[in-house]
Amino acid sequence: MTRICVAGGTGQVGREVVRQALAAGHSVAAFSRNPPGPGSTARVDGAEYFAADVTTGEGLAAALAGADVVIDCLEGRSGRALKNYADGGARLLAAARDAGVARAVMLSIVNCDRSTLGYYASKAAKERVYDRSGLKTVTLRATQFHSLLAAVFAAGSRLRVVPVVKGARFQPIAPADAATALLEEALAPAGTGHVHRTRTIGGPEVRDMEDFARQWKAVTGSRGSIVRLPLPGAMGRYLRAGLNLVPEDRHAGETFSGWLAKSADSL
């Protein structure tokens, strides 16, 4: 049995890592700044939950105690969390080293180092922290999640519009499939050579964004009109260049339509 510490164990991927690790018979510690209380949907029975903050280091020692590996699913989307995202990674790895943790695996985004968008640039900066850490580390770069597309469509649909980005294709992946890959890397036999390695994983299908919008409409019954819109700025350039796609690294996992069918009640 392996003791796994999941950083950000209450997020959409972190919860899946916790659930799958417990189902496989491993011991799991999960931490976040505000851990869920008993009865919360973010809590998975059998895991130990800790309050810890990588921006200050508070609580990390307790969360990492006895862990063999840490899986980092933390996000830093805005404000202090975004500004300190890479530094938080360094603080987590230093605490892991002090706790005797042998390996760390982080979740990232495909081609994040080729975008100037702040969120993506922060991911790339954190990848460099992992590369320099001296621990055995793996970066798992994944394509965008099914939930991102669904959220974009739902937000526009409130105004009777289902927006799609002109010239953009997507290769979305299920959070559960990303979690499976993270666990595979966390539990893989220790290799030789460079201590840091990067793996890329993409969803099972590459389609125009409009195709996914039509699938979403069919499941949700939305009456919004599909409208193609230009997307300026760094994100628009990233998408139009196809940097969100890794067709050579398709993963035979859950399709967008399959995820929609399973998630219909919560869309």
Rank of each mutant, 00 (worst) to 15 (best):
M1D: 13
M1K: 12
T2C: 09
V13M: 05
V17Q: 10
S27T: 13
R33K: 08
N34M: 03
G39Y: 12
S40Y: 11
A47N: 02
E48Y: 00
E48A: 14
Y49Q: 13
F50I: 05
A51L: 05
A52H: 10
T56D: 05
G57I: 04
G57K: 06
E58S: 15
G59P: 08
G59S: 07
A62R: 13
G66M: 10
A67P: 03
D68P: 07
C73W: 09
E75S: 15
A81L: 04
A81S: 04
N84M: 14
A86K: 07
D87F: 06
A95E: 10
A96G: 06
A99R: 02
A99N: 04
G100R: 06
A104Y: 03
V110A: 12
N111E: 14
R114W: 05
R114M: 13
S115G: 03
G118Q: 10
Y120G: 00
S122F: 06
A124F: 11
E127W: 07
E127M: 01
L135D: 02
V138L: 00
V138N: 00
T139R: 00
Q144L: 11
H146Y: 06
F153P: 08
A154D: 14
G156I: 03
L159M: 15
V162I: 15
V164D: 04
A168K: 02
I173W: 00
A176S: 14
A179E: 08
A179D: 09
T180P: 05
E185D: 03
A186V: 06
A186E: 03
A188K: 12
A190Y: 00
A190K: 01
G193D: 01
R197D: 00
R197C: 00
R199V: 00
T200P: 00
G203P: 11
P204D: 03
E205N: 11
V206C: 06
D208S: 11
E210R: 15
F212T: 06
R214G: 08
A218G: 09
S222N: 07
R223F: 03
V227G: 06
P230D: 04
P230T: 06
G233L: 09
G236T: 07
G236V: 04
R240N: 14
G242R: 07
G242P: 03
N244Q: 10
N244V: 10
V246S: 12
P247F: 04
D249N: 14
D249C: 14
T255N: 09
S263L: 02
L267F: 11
